[in-house]
Design a protein around this nucleic acid. Structure first.
Lengths: 333, 333
DNA sequence: TTTCGGATTTGAAACGTGTAAAGAATTTCA
DNA sequence: TGAAATTCTTTACACGTTTCAAATCCGAAA
């Protein structure tokens, strides 16, 4: 059941069948019909391996993520897959678990598989691996952590904007003592968020109080601990911004345990806008990063590089926007 | 940079190189060394497309899930990927979004890709698609929803056991009015869980009270609504079992809104044991389904079918076990 | 020592299945 | 009628695997 059989049955050459399937040139309607009939009758499915071998394109994209279990990623993966499938690509998922060795192995496999491009959604990527992809001309798109180069694009999430909006929102409500719970400081994205917060505060002429800026671990537990710490201060903040939603959820729990009401006693803002944020109690005001937008940007940039339209990659900025729900209000008196 | 170049440089035939890489026959140590040197010097990576074409094996597995965003799946996907990678396979993820057309398209693509096997983690799979895989001899493993046949295995999650344990636990604590919030009844797994609950109650000689068995939607909102309903009863339950953890979390919120304390006023048990269950307030007692176990069972069964060791598939039972945390206690007086 | 049978190791060549460049045949249009 | 356009065919790949056969080596028998 291969293209030859189809060609024989339709009484055309294999090239005609191939061109029909790939739409690479016009085929007369009658011929097309004959061929389609043959294809249907034989239940022919082209062999993508052979196609890939002959054409040099695999229609396969590698998607490297550090941890799908992190609620930020599934949506990203889902959207990316949707984009890919729409354009006739499929994705090979590679979960690295933050393990460099594993990452190296997976990248090697992706190369052997002759993927047409790789989306790297983790910052823990060795330069040698990037080089190995680059040498072979495989386009790459990074999330947040990369510099544009030949065949390398980068999606930059504009944390600054969302954080500005969030803090602005709190300022407008009348808050002046604003706390921040950052993520683990060994992660680049954590540091960026923290820095954006501090910078904006300074820009607004608000004196930074060291004790109001604490560190969590981007998990619920870390948020809880950090919030407890903040509450133990002589003068606790009237509003807290968390580096991600899980942290905010932990903070929410800590507040409840201390008998503080959100938002009456203290306001709380998260970051990411994971699905859960809508269903916390109270629903969490948070900064939305559109996973759909990020995935689309990543895919589009990759496709552009694959298509060879541009040699040099580009940087795409993805906005973040404040989503006001019910965890913020004027400070209590 | 192909096998021929390597062969030339090592002054051997391509067959020898191939055999060395695939370990399909002994190669004398000197020859092996020559070849390895050539491979290293050239930075040769075999072309998997060509390999697949020649050998008929793609070392690729399809993983069909209905919705990766559902917190049950990421862990499953992760574990499955781990198993696969360990044995030299890679996975192509196909997210169906419960859309039959999309499912059909993805299955077709997987066939074209000549995947060596498919794991179907969704119940919404058309019989014609299954047939299309079967005709081509592609092994399949289902989760919960399939009958073993030639080249088809099934992983059966033992809901009954977990639910028995959960209810038993409540009974031991002294509860007699036990409510249940099911998932959407159009999902097979929801129905199974609901049935298991009712059956166990009956077995224990407890009269089923219709009003205590409500329906949610496997999401937080649904859990909240359902719990509110239960609380409006003249005689509300003293304990509630939810069909999944998200539902339980919704119920938790509803209870809090009504000023009821968990577990003092009312006990609550979830199902699935998603990561979040550990971090709710109070930590949720729930029935654990080991995603790792499920993934391993699925992969192993699939591998067995691929290896051709067995023609007829088999059914693997995966246990579920109660994890007691802090959302259950003796009923208040 | 020579020779023979079998085991080991290697090579040649035939696949597997599609794509694409170049060229042939046919039709269209001036 | 000839040039151009359209449609199709021929054929040379792409790159491994695998079968079958050849070469080499070993120890035992003659």
């Amino acid at each position: 059941m291969n293209i030859k059989k189809v060609a024989e049955r339709a009484k055309v050459s294999t090239a005609t069948v191939s061109r029909l399937l790939n739409k690479t040139s016009y085929i007369s309607p009658e011929t097309a019909k004959k061929v389609w009939t043959a294809i249907d009758e034989l239940g022919y499915y082209p062999n993508i391996n052979a196609r890939g071998l002959a054409s040099g394109r695999s229609q396969l994209l590698g998607l490297i993520v550090s941890d799908i279990v992190n609620p930020f990623f599934p949506e990203l993966v889902k959207s990316f897959e949707e984009c890919a499938v729409e354009r006739g690509f499929e994705i090979i998922m590679a979960n690295t678990n933050y393990d460099p060795q594993r990452t190296a192995m997976r990248v090697r496999q992706l190369i052997e598989r002759r993927v047409d491009g790789v989306a790297v959604m983790t910052s823990e990527m060795d330069q040698t691996l990037i080089d190995e992809l680059s040498t072979r001309g495989i386009p790459i798109v990074f999330l947040d952590t990369g510099e544009i180069q030949e065949k390398i694009s980068n999606i930059r999430i504009d944390y600054e904007q969302g954080i500005s909006e969030a803090v602005e929102h709190l300022l407008e409500l009348g808050h002046r003592r604003i706390g921040f719970i950052s993520g683990p400081l060994n992660l680049k994205s954590s540091r960026i968020r923290r820095l954006a917060f501090l910078r904006f505060l300074r820009r607004k002429g608000i004196i930074e109080k060291k004790e109001l800026v604490t560190t969590g671990n981007h998990n619920i537990g870390g948020g809880r601990t950090a919030m407890n710490q903040l509450l133990e201060l002589a003068e606790p903040p009237t509003a807290v911004l968390a580096s991600n939603d899980l942290t905010a959820i932990g903070a929410l729990q800590a507040l409840r345990n201390h008998g503080r009401h959100v938002p009456e006693d203290i306001s709380l803002i998260g970051f990411d806008d994971i699905a859960l944020a809508e269903s916390t109690d109270p629903p969490l005001t948070t900064v939305n990063i559109s996973r759909v937008r990020v995935a689309e940007a990543a895919f589009d940039s990759l496709l552009e590089l694959i298509g060879g339209e541009t040699e040099i990659g580009r940087e795409v900025r993805v906005e973040t926007t404040l989503v006001v729900r019910e965890s913020t209000a004027r400070p209590g008196i």
